[in-house]
Design a protein around this nucleic acid. Sequence first.
DNA 1: TATGAATGAGCCTTCATTCAT
DNA 2: GATGAATGAAGGCTCATTCAT
Lengths: 203, 203, 203, 203
Amino acid sequence: MSPKSNEQFKLIREEKKSLIKQKALELFAREGYDKTSISKIAKEAGISKGLLYNYFDSKEDLLTAIIFKEMEKIVSFFDPNHDGVLEMQEMKYFIQKTFELIKQNPEFWRLYFMLAFQPQVMKLVEHRFWEVIRPMMQVSNEFFSNKGYKEPIVWTRFLAAVLDGISLHYILDTDNFPMEKIEEIIINIICYSNPEPQKNQSQ
Amino acid sequence: MSPKSNEQFKLIREEKKSLIKQKALELFAREGYDKTSISKIAKEAGISKGLLYNYFDSKEDLLTAIIFKEMEKIVSFFDPNHDGVLEMQEMKYFIQKTFELIKQNPEFWRLYFMLAFQPQVMKLVEHRFWEVIRPMMQVSNEFFSNKGYKEPIVWTRFLAAVLDGISLHYILDTDNFPMEKIEEIIINIICYSNPEPQKNQSQ
Amino acid sequence: MSPKSNEQFKLIREEKKSLIKQKALELFAREGYDKTSISKIAKEAGISKGLLYNYFDSKEDLLTAIIFKEMEKIVSFFDPNHDGVLEMQEMKYFIQKTFELIKQNPEFWRLYFMLAFQPQVMKLVEHRFWEVIRPMMQVSNEFFSNKGYKEPIVWTRFLAAVLDGISLHYILDTDNFPMEKIEEIIINIICYSNPEPQKNQSQ
Amino acid sequence: MSPKSNEQFKLIREEKKSLIKQKALELFAREGYDKTSISKIAKEAGISKGLLYNYFDSKEDLLTAIIFKEMEKIVSFFDPNHDGVLEMQEMKYFIQKTFELIKQNPEFWRLYFMLAFQPQVMKLVEHRFWEVIRPMMQVSNEFFSNKGYKEPIVWTRFLAAVLDGISLHYILDTDNFPMEKIEEIIINIICYSNPEPQKNQSQ
DNA sequence: TATGAATGAGCCTTCATTCAT
DNA sequence: GATGAATGAAGGCTCATTCAT
């Protein structure tokens, strides 16, 4: 009867899916994946339990949909236009962008850290994570390599660990964590310090 | 009179409690706190479900027992004999000890990170965590203060975040993470670099 | 739009709730509150255990729902139209109504007496009981007062105790207890005897 | 080795059994039969769970032991020396004794009322109850018969119901229930009033 | 006699998922 | 598309009872 086109239907469908994902993310982040029931999500999204299963096959499916959606955002966030060479300014920009990302959607990152420790769940999404992270690490490797560091891979892993550590603490104590100042510190260390400094003094 | 002395009972009890805690820790770390059922723990420990409740009042009680036991180890690990002033060598020693701790019991730290994102569960144990962490942070503040840093608190938070980040990555990829080399890097940064370096260059 | 109207759902819901309450009351009365498991109630009502929790939040909730439903019946049973003054005929009518109530739903009163001795459970419902009982006692007090009794409160408590005692024996031996004749006896005593009779003879 | 005679052993055993029964009665009355665990009873009696089973075969056995012990006390309380004929003074004395009994051991009577509504449990002890109650009822029948009442059995049942009702209310509200005054009332009614009074007025 | 470790069945409750409408 | 009734498996926990010592 109604002259709604297929397109319109699809649009409505996508909007509803998006709403569900949003509400689910909020709940997962606040209460944990296990502690969040499908009922609660449905209620929060203003639909019935049954209908939710019309949009997502299972709770796990909903979770992976959330992750994948967010990973796409991340990819488009770091626009991969550049040629793979990261100058100092670019690295600084990259680091800042990373933290910006965290600040923009702490809920997702909360979920991300939660899942990092659930191997069964992580398995569902880890390939997608790697798709995103691997190219970033490669670029980072080149950066440290260009800067003259002897073990760029080690430095890349160091950088990744530190960024995660800072994100972690920011998320766990958003209100008090001195994010800006610590951003400055880490940018100084990564971008403006000499390669492998003071090696002789250590040990 | 009594056919089994109190001592004997107590010993058996403590040993069995320890066994249960051990098995529970393994499972919690491997599968997550929520996903690990009391049944599974009991089976793993070779006892009946009912008996577990003879030793621990509840699942939560078992969890806190694990945490508290480990926290005690940690306190005794960093022997608090020193006078609160941390020389460079001591800071280096402290950082090394921290990583040693992680390496000795990665399962516990896996659990620790998992709990960090479960507010309801964290509440049960956070006061105990703070008892251990607060004095450490104070000593760290003094260290950076003595070293001439203008914002020692910021640096302490930076150090804590970085140590956690490194631990996190070590735990998530124990086999491949270049722990020793990264230890070296962070020790160099914290112990042997100048206060607030290259400030003018940044931004 | 919706394939089953709200009305329909509500109706089904209420009917099923009613069925569950009915079956639960039967079982509670026959076997006792503690001895009656949710499983048994569900089986008796022909539904799954899980569904029962769709209708009632807990076993306690089911119990209070039963009680409250019955209390409402009682309130409407003694229509409170009168002005609070109880003539002899009214008192007689009141007593007869009381016993009628017991006879109509002995299962509920069996439950009522059971609960009277379970303080933890009684606490859940006692305020509701008092809402019903208090006004009755006030009217009774006035009746005895008007009749010239010096201590109407004592007589009200006596009446309450006696009515409960008779109900108790009726419930415990419904088949043989000579209810009608005993009703007559108590009505004679309360309605047609003189105030504080034979005081001098006693003791 | 120790020169304790068999008698002494038996005595000690009986005392311990008595202690357990006492503590169990207290707990049953306070918390209910089902809600009282064997563990709690053992702890309260200062012995181990295992030992309790040395004295009583089961929880039910413990319960029946408590009931039987108390029933014996009751029998000896109403010394059955008299010839079966109950004069007015004797009836008065009997009623007073009944209430005295309640007042002396309200815990037991609380338990008694609790059990009255648990058919499965009642079955275990009801024959013992009847052994005690039946002769009392016979004597009562004779009393009312002698007093000229046409239906002594009805009056006996009335008396029993009323005594139970009063006991019930006394137990449920020991502090406020005007026991003495109500004793007086019921004694007046039973002992000093005319047979089948005011019959013509009723109905 | 005396202990408490040990069991196992059963209890209340939750929840992902399915299905008739 | 949309609803919520319905299921069944599982989870945490309790407790009467047994048993080795």
